[in-house]
Design a binder for these strands. Structure first.
Lengths: 111, 111
DNA sequence: TCATTATATCATGAAATTATGATATGTTAT
DNA sequence: ATAACATATCATAATTTCATGATATAATGA
């Protein structure tokens, strides 16, 4: 047991799972959604989402690490944007699948 | 505050976040990956993944609720499969994005 | 320089997710 | 009918994620 191949698969799947974890939080999902409309500063996101500044900053850091967003600084403002077109493709596919399964998803109390 | 529009956005994003939560666990991700190769019984997944039977069954229930997989029963066996082509498209896009960001993702200790 | 504003970081408690072990359900074969 | 096997369900404990509040860093303007 514990063959090298299996170990590799475990590590790989942890990587991908972590990637999807980026969109598995409502606030982070909403941030990505807003950024698809164009870059926004941290403050703008805080205002729009009505969440605390530290919360937004933390989530942005997470999204940046996962490769969903990038950022640029302009004076004391930091603007976040989505540069990878594949991110919006993933979101759109999810939208379609969810549309066909909305009724089920909300009832998932298992985990 | 608490305008109807914002409430709707919150509910929507919770739905989508829950959907992505399906792939945000290494075991569930691995299950989907294996099923992309063709349908498998619960027992086969248990053997291949080396996880407990209850764990696999629970994860499968979760994936089913999210619309990632469907199942058919044949005698005492239950076979799970991926019917929605968009699931594999999402996986492939993720694979590409992760490939460009692998170094960063693993260092995401924030959350 | 000092005050103000914008953003980032971090410790901690609260809440949610997950694995485990036990048990239940259902099917097949004897 | 009952034993054996496959799968599902569920309570609970362990782990992880998350929000909060406090503090730090950094840029701008007075």
């Amino acid at each position: 047991m514990d063959e090298p191949l299996k170990v590799m698969h475990v590590i790989q799947s942890e990587l991908y799972a972590k990637f999807f974890q980026g969109l598995s939080n409502p606030v982070r999902y909403r941030i990505v959604e807003l950024l698809l409309d164009g870059e926004k500063s941290v403050g703008e996101l805080v205002n729009t989402l009505g969440a605390s500044q530290s919360q937004i900053s933390n989530h942005l850091a997470c999204l940046k690490w996962c490769g969903y967003v990038s950022s640029r600084q302009d004076g004391k403002y930091v603007y976040y944007q989505i540069t990878d077109k594949r991110v919006s493709q993933i979101m759109e596919l999810a939208r379609q699948v969810v549309a066909d399964n909305a009724a089920h998803i909300n009832s998932c109390t298992r985990m």
